[in-house]
Each structure stands twice: as structure tokens, then as C-alpha cells.
């Protein structure tokens, strides 16, 4: 039973991480990284680490997401024109 929960969460996390690298839109990448953090925090609950889960949800998913989104708005570089694969 637990194996399936873990498997789903881990694959969610890895898909999210892949999207962080692959999505051309940086705001989308930030959203994907938030998804990674959320999956991770659920995984921490499964691993009996409620304190860490709370911190990861509040800091990793919430605060870091806000920071990245703010930084993107300040640099106005949602579309990364500079970042064509070379």
C-alpha cells in the first residue's frame, strides 16, 4: 500500500523536476518547482516527519515560490529569449 503512495509521489516529484528544467516559460518552471516542494512535503508526512513537512510546505513551496515569482516580475523575463538551446 505504502509503496504505491510513495511511487506516485516520487513520480510526481520527478515529473515536476523535469518540467522545472524543460518548460520554456520561467513562470511555469517556478510553478513546477512549487509542485515538487508540495509532493515532497506530502512525502515527508508519509515518512513520519510532520515538522519537516510543515516547513517544506511553508518555506519550500510557499515562500520560495513567492520569491521566484517576485524576481521574475522584477526582471520581466517570463519568456526566456536568451535561453535558446545552443
Amino acid at each position: 500500500m505504502m509503496v504505491w503512495v510513495v511511487a506516485i509521489l516520487v513520480s510526481l516529484m520527478l515529473i515536476g523536476a523535469f518540467l522545472v528544467v524543460a518548460i520554456p516559460d520561467l513562470l511555469g518552471a517556478v510553478a513546477a518547482s512549487t509542485a515538487v516542494s508540495l509532493a515532497l512535503s506530502v512525502l515527508f508526512v508519509v515518512l513520519r516527519a510532520p515538522d519537516v513537512a510543515m516547513a517544506e510546505a511553508a518555506v519550500g513551496a510557499g515562500l520560495a515560490g513567492v520569491l521566484f515569482a517576485l524576481a521574475l516580475r522584477k526582471t520581466e523575463s517570463r519568456r526566456t529569449r536568451d535561453e535558446e538551446a545552443s
Binding site: P50, M54, A55, A58, V59, G62, L63, V66
Partner: peptide, 16 residues
């Protein structure tokens, strides 16, 4: 569960 870090992050959210 919870404490200074988690609560501190919530306090920060309250202000920002």
C-alpha cells in the same frame, strides 16, 4: 509538530 521555523514563516506571511 511545528515551531519557530514554521510559525516564523507564517508570521512572515502575515506581514508580507
Amino acid at each position: 509538530p511545528g515551531g519557530g521555523f514554521q510559525g516564523g514563516a507564517i508570521l512572515a506571511a502575515a506581514f508580507f
